[in-house]
Design a protein around this nucleic acid. Sequence first.
DNA 1: GTAAACCTTTACGCAACGTTAAGGTCAATA
DNA 2: TATTGACCTTAACGTTGCGTAAAGGTTTAC
Lengths: 255, 255
Amino acid sequence: MEYTVQQLAKTAGISSRTLRYYDEIGLLKPARLTSSGYRIYGPKEVDRLQQILFFRELGVGLEQIREIINDPSFDSLTALREHRVKLLEKKQQLELLINNVEKTIAQYEGRIIMTDQEKFEGFKQKLIDENEAKYGKEVREKYGDEAVDKSYRKMKEMTQEQYAEFEKLGQMVLDTLKEAMAAGDPASELAQKAADLHRQWLCFTWDNYSKEAHAGLAQMYVNDERFAAYYDRIKPGAAKFLRDAVLVYTGMNRQ
Amino acid sequence: MEYTVQQLAKTAGISSRTLRYYDEIGLLKPARLTSSGYRIYGPKEVDRLQQILFFRELGVGLEQIREIINDPSFDSLTALREHRVKLLEKKQQLELLINNVEKTIAQYEGRIIMTDQEKFEGFKQKLIDENEAKYGKEVREKYGDEAVDKSYRKMKEMTQEQYAEFEKLGQMVLDTLKEAMAAGDPASELAQKAADLHRQWLCFTWDNYSKEAHAGLAQMYVNDERFAAYYDRIKPGAAKFLRDAVLVYTGMNRQ
DNA sequence: GTAAACCTTTACGCAACGTTAAGGTCAATA
DNA sequence: TATTGACCTTAACGTTGCGTAAAGGTTTAC
């Protein structure tokens, strides 16, 4: 089959301008030119265009596409298999995004509550399997088991008002913690108030509070960098300070 | 929760430059500025950013996004429901594209033939329901000839392991073929092994194997330049060699 | 023979940031 | 207290992948 610019453009679902541009930058040159200078594309060009569009769909720059497919060691079949994998990943990400929008609808309808993290799930590209692995295994097996899962579910069941109260309390924990750190003593009155606020805050999502669990969680804040980052962004060492305060508060520091 | 540019950028998976740009064009202004002019974003801005990213994901221009969400009659919930529909459509299109790439792989491997139309399926955006109609009727009646469809469906039903096995077998065909060609005799033991492996490979996607069909396909490998290219890339003349080997294997060379 | 529907090159425009550059701010440390 | 390093700021130019005229030649259809 031979095609003129517009014919090929139509079958490929792109514009003729795009084809001329691809010619201009040396990405896809026509098979030949007619005597009057019209571009004519053949079967090879059709396949090459298809490859180009696969790469383009995956966000690869035109310049880079040219380098890739002009490379003598380039193998179409291998490339196609890679496309397939990437597209499947993209589909997974899209499913995350659909999940996100459905959750967000539920949130707007007041049925559930979302964390800020969740609100952007599916937008980010890379951390797909990392998240899967990390979130699914490590956290739940190492610390979370049941409890993390349960607390998450409970938070999702919160109403708007409850959540506002929850956030406010969370902010108070941080504020009090920061103020208490200025003094520097985890046993101080202010630090103990922070620990108490923290307990109240936890009780929003915890079914049954225990000193042991509270102290254990505080220790986890120090061990796990992701939790630590949450508190340390207020002030470096905040996670440790909170742990110490909680250890005093729960009386677990004497063991 | 309050965020600085970089913190919000990180949680949302975008760059801080993007946030500054969105501020510049009045798309997303920070909740407030610190005394030193630092941008601070609050919960409202987080939700607004989420909405923006949903629109952006669907290819809406920033200018238009601003108009939409600044409109007093804008309803987040309605917008979200529309997002959901659009995302589901996008997913459908992605599935078309994945379908396409899998078909293309099958084509490169010499199992099926594609029309130029099919090669660009999934790239175009709008023709979704048209595709639906076309797929069901025209295409299948015109070219599909049942078998192609069946073999393709069978491949899609393969598990990961089966597919890996299938691929491995395909590679073995090529390897054995290459080795056999060194000797040069299509009736040699090695060449016959290649033909047998080829039969096994075909049986992954064929419902009912017959000597006639096998020999016919082998002949097609030589006739159709696109199939020939797949085998000849191993070694020039490989398609012909395979055909001859298969003709011996099936006993169709004596007719 | 002429209109409609193609094709050509040239060139300016644009969206959505990326990328320096040049400098101010903030919290931890020596 | 000074300094270091990791933040933040504005300003401004650069880039990618085309869209969109403008000005004109070619082909096909009646």
